[in-house]
Design a binder for these strands. Structure first.
Lengths: 347, 347
DNA sequence: TTGAAAGCGGTACCAG
DNA sequence: CTGGTACCGCTTTCAA
């Protein structure tokens, strides 16, 4: 945009200094006399000078911006993550450039490329459910771009990861369902390729094993598009309902899948939890308002965003290349409500 | 970031052309022979050349990015707007830089300044509820930065505006409440300074007038922080409940206020809609899942985002300064559900 | 303590 | 049709 901001050259001319002197004075260089600094700064302030960040970027190869890749903003979990990232970025002087993959690998790659051409200083990434091939991302990483994964992570290269305790959360939720009387617990979950899917399945299996409940693979339904298309959720749930021995509980493994499945049961007037209990990962703000109130595992989304941003900025600003990467696992919270408790009059 | 991308100069050296020739060849200039173009493009492609957007920005004063200012991302309405903006921006080759005001004027100004220093090509803005003083924004606009307002707009300068039909929506909702038997309809709404507050009040008053229902100013509660603080919602609702003649219906005028008020009534075990009906502006995806299902006015948030982005990009790319600004008013939808219908067995 | 000049990568004017 | 050159705004040697 054509903001007619004053430049260093303007200041230099006006004060009869060289532009180098002005530049140094503004950056408080030790080589400049206090007097000169005062004059320059005063003039700059009075004339509302602000450095042209684009010029600084070109010179320094730093843009003070971070690229964000996630599947979809209108999703409470991701929206909260964005907010967490923003809270840190703002304080550290970074802007965030947001892109959505819509769970599509193609779109993800395109976004990653565009972001890299824009010289973002680093990337915060949650993978799309369709993504099988990580080569674009790997390529960008090899070029030296710091990347932090969150939520849907990958081990295709070594870097910081920020995740919720998916195994623990899934374990707790499954255990709760078992203890409230369910034996045939189905899981409606995301694409098999995602880390969250694997981990949430692991926690689920662990709880079943602990209670000696046999695993029925037919009870596990994968949504290849992560529930991006409502039909895949509906057909998954429908298939479960149509089984010879249908499940007595649904463990839904993501925001979108949880709301979608719940809505379908509602629509079909299936009594919850009597006919079928339901509980799942969900970051909607008020699951207690649902009918019946919804048992959820809540992820610390805002915290995850903050953590990811902190780790990324540390990577960006560190002098020496990091070799010691960490996987931050943040605790989840189980909120037991009526949708999962078969016996009447509880909670 | 230090992506070691090849530059035009590299190509020029390698092929023994001048950098100007290479630049022109890559941009398909008519002055370059087909042969040369072929050679240059082939080499560029093979060596994975991509223009340095920062350098282009410095030269052209265009950054192919648009700044977005809104109060909060984890809010379904705004999240959908972001998604709408992104859908257009992506197709047109723009990136979006997102900032949150958290309803704070100070934060809003700071974000606007930062965005302007970053040379965004234009701004899409929804004002914070605290904002009284528009001078920063006006200043930026006077410098020639295209700005499009959405949702919370201002007439402090002339530009495109994209809003929902707040008057119509509020009118329809109020009328519906009246027709379903409510006479004492309270409105819990945002800061008085916001356009949406004025318009939603206007629609509300219009419906009351039409039915000859006297206006009780005590029934209108303003949340100065737009419901950013849950306490202000709670005290507003509590004051209404504590009145000598408490209202028999609550018209909640924003996403956050709707969910917050509904949650409070829930928590206090107040029978909805028998004791008090509730209905409001809300873009949560599945209000039919609530207990009771929630009557809502839904704004076409995604469409609003698309429209705002289209108008902004048109402004950015138009040769001559625009003088003919429009106010796009998009229709809202009323979904009648149980929370607002006093008589049993309806919907 | 200050200034001159080169350069980040690309674009565009002017010559030839 | 192609090359030379200046410049966008800022930083950073190197010299003075």
């Amino acid at each position: 945009m054509k903001i007619e901001s004053i430049t260093i050259t303007d200041i230099a001319k006006a004060l009869n200094f060289s532009s180098s002197t002005v530049s140094r004075a503004l950056r408080d260089s030790y080589q400049i006399s206090e007097e000169t600094k005062r004059i320059v700064k005063e003039y700059a302030h009075k004339n509302n000078y602000h450095p042209n960040l684009v010029a600084q970027s070109l010179k320094s190869n730093k843009s003070k911006s971070i690229g964000l890749l996630l599947c979809s903003v209108p999703n409470n979990f991701f929206a909260e993550v964005v907010s967490g990232i923003e809270s840190i970025a703002y304080n550290r002087g970074y802007h965030i450039i947001i892109t959505q993959s819509h769970e599509s690998q193609e779109r993800e790659e395109s976004n990653l490329e565009h972001l890299s051409w824009r010289s973002v200083d680093g990337l915060i990434v949650s993978l799309a459910s369709e993504t099988k091939d990580m080569s674009t991302l790997q390529h960008i990483h090899e070029q030296g771009v710091p990347i932090v994964f969150f939520d849907r992570v990958s081990d295709c290269f070594n870097t910081h990861q920020v995740v919720a305790d998916n195994i623990g959360g899934a374990y707790n939720l499954t255990k709760h369902l078992i203890e409230s009387g369910c034996r045939n617990i189905a899981q409606v979950t995301s694409s098999q390729s995602l880390s969250i899917t694997r981990e949430r399945k692991e926690g689920y299996l662990k709880a079943l094993a602990e209670y000696d409940i046999p695993v029925n693979e037919d009870y596990i339904k994968y949504c290849e598009h992560g529930g991006m298309m409502i039909e895949e959720i509906e057909s998954a749930v429908q298939e479960l309902l149509d089984m010879a021995n249908p499940p007595d509980a649904l463990f839904t493994a993501s925001d979108r899948i949880t709301i979608g499945s719940f809505a379908l049961l509602h629509q079909k007037n299936i009594p919850i939890p009597d006919k079928i209990a339901i509980a799942g990962f969900c970051n909607f703000s008020s699951p207690e308002l649902f009918n019946p109130s919804l048992t959820t595992i809540r992820q610390p989304a805002f915290e995850m965003g903050k953590t990811a941003a902190e780790l990324l900025i540390k990577l960006i600003e560190s002098k020496k290349p990091e070799t010691n990467f960490e996987k931050r696992i943040l605790p989840t919270e189980l909120f037991v409500r009526k949708s999962s408790v078969k016996v009447a009059a509880v909670v």
